[in-house]
Amino acid sequence: MDELELLKKDWNKHKSDYKSYSDTELYPMIHKKSSSIVKTLFYISIAELVFWILISYVPYFFSDKMRARLETSYENPLFTGLTIFGFLIVLLFVYLLYKSHKSISSTDNAKKLMESILKTRKVIKYYVLYNLIMIFISIPLSFYFEFNQNIEFHDQVAGFDSAQMAVLVAMVVLITGIFLLLIWLFYRLIYGILLKRLNRNYDELKKLEV
């Protein structure tokens, strides 16, 4: 006899083996807090939005020197333009995150549900990537502005010979690279742990289509 047929015969015999919850027991259960990965993902995405916004604005509120410098920077239309662009990008990501979170539905089929969760994760990934790229661009850019506006720094750097200059450039690139790599690894770790099982199951379903 087929193994599964034997199991099927037995499977439905156990109806009375399970605990039968009464109505009064079920009422409080439906209002308990969920611990689903969608909820965790939601909190992480909110934390990330807040984190990157704070990173850009905390210096403005905590350092007078920084505030004074930023205020003079706003006189530069390029800087103002970049700030407005930054705001618009954050708004765009908030909208995309809201939309993709809304599209996650436990009543979809298993594959579609997994795809909506992975899509949400992708939106967060692009947001992080955007921030990392901005950091990567802004570090050399701030060096450039510093070089042009800070006379002391300008004189110091202008006095460098080519070997010293190469070391300086290499140091800047290296420090930026290490910083970005660490942040990237940190994200891989968080999502790797959170979505390991989902990725495995999604691959299993995808494999069936080949």
């Binding site: 599964l4 199991l7 099927k8 298993a110 199951n201 379903l205």
Partner: peptide, 26 residues
């Protein structure tokens, strides 16, 4: 694995292949 269990579960619950495929999205 999780997907195989789902197949077995729906089979044991006497679901036809149409319903199994609709539930899993394959």
């Amino acid at each position: 694995n999780d997907i195989e269990k789902a197949l077995v579960f729906l089979y044991l619950e006497d679901k036809d292949y149409r319903e199994i495929s609709e539930t899993l999205g394959i």
